[in-house]
Design a protein around this nucleic acid. Structure first.
Lengths: 126, 126
DNA sequence: TGACAAATGAGAATGATTATCATACAATAT
DNA sequence: ATATTGTATGATAATCATTCTCATTTGTCA
């Protein structure tokens, strides 16, 4: 299990790497053939542990996964639920803030909740 | 429903306000008597919508709720799973970063993943 | 007080995720 | 190349948190 990436895990990774967006386990499952539910979840866990992908728990819906290509924050629209990436790396700052408590920060997840551009405009138009 | 807080919702809020920590719906349910499961979930939703409490989706376990008394970030230990609060308000910075995309940021959730102090020391001792 | 809307709670239902386990595959040793 | 041993797979059952349903209760306000 550990360092190796099985053929199935590789296809899961390729879907995430090529689609350049946030996908649920179910969406990945639907886009592939001849792969079992459990295998997809196992691959996602494995790839997450290896630091190749990231799991986002946003709101109440099922978790979404993204391929890690850079450090960015997420804008979660509380109206339509979409998640948009914004380039911004706050890890250094966050790491500094955590230092006082003796924590080691490996990765910082920043989810900004509010309204996306479209919903902002829709609300203003009312 | 909207502005009013029912007696049951009030007791849920009081648990969160007094315990000063992160609680799951189940924990809140267990600490109260004569209150149904659905009612606890409904109260948590209602209080979240009113902006009195906050739902945190950390990792794979069930969501946790916290009473909002200030803006802070969360340190999630990837070894023992505990969530610790650290005083740090990054909302201004995050709002600024989101401005370029036309987003409105109401609240920023910052989850720093790494090792808590205890687990850091445990790892160093090995 | 009466009428109507909203909230409650018991339990069923849902939906996402995980566990089980027999089979298939891969790597290594013989 | 073949046996051996361990690991991955996938079909399905199971689990767990959360939501839905609906009959009953409670609250509101005319």
């Amino acid at each position: 299990m550990s360092g190796r990436i099985s053929a199935q895990a590789k296809t899961v990774l390729e879907v995430l790497a090529s689609k350049r967006c946030h996908l649920t386990a179910e969406e990945i499952l639907a886009s592939l053939e001849n792969i079992g539910t459990a295998t997809v979840y196992r691959a996602l866990d494995h790839l997450t542990e290896m630091g190749l992908i990231r799991r986002l728990s946003v709101g109440k819906r099922s978790a979404v996964y993204e391929y890690i290509r850079d450090q960015h924050m997420h804008l979660v629209c509380s109206r339509c639920g979409t998640v948009v990436d914004v380039q911004a790396d706050m890890t250094g700052m966050i790491r500094e803030a955590a230092k006082c408590c003796g924590h080691r920060v490996d990765f910082a997840e920043v989810n900004a909740h509010g309204l996306c551009k479209a919903c902002c405009e829709a609300e203003a138009a009312q």
